[in-house]
């Protein structure tokens, strides 16, 4: 595992999020399906506690549904990478802690 492999890994993740996401199955997932069949899906409706920027993985203000999903995927993938990277740096390997492992 070196820098090149990591960049490739990130590119693969971005490609999946951007290119494959518009072709994802729109059917309900396992839990949603069970909630629908067993009659408790309505409990989740109208219970929104936060106002998310891209609900249902749709980037706001884009007419094309596929493009909106691709963009949401790209933004989300980069956000997750950045958040994970920064959190690891801050909490797991804070400065001054460096050298504890054999880096």
């Amino acid at each position: 595992m070196n820098r090149k492999n990591l960049i490739w890994g990130l590119l693969v993740a971005l490609a999946i999020a951007a290119i494959l996401s518009p072709f994802a199955s729109p059917s309900p997932d396992g839990l949603e399906r069970v909630a629908e069949d067993k009659g408790f899906l309505h409990l989740a409706e109208g219970k929104e506690l936060i106002h998310a920027l891209m609900p249902d993985y749709v980037f706001p203000g884009i007419a094309s549904e596929g493009l909106a999903t691709s963009l949401a995927g790209l933004v989300g993938t980069l956000l997750v990478f950045a958040a994970m990277y920064l959190l690891s740096r801050v909490f797991v390997r804070p400065k001054g802690n460096a050298g504890k492992g054999r880096s």
Binding site: G9, V12, A13, L14, I16, A17, G73, T77, V80, F81
Partner: peptide, 11 residues
């Protein structure tokens, strides 16, 4: 590597 794995799983 943690960041890349997280990004891949999200995607």
């Amino acid at each position: 590597a943690l960041g890349v794995m997280a990004a891949f799983i999200f995607a």
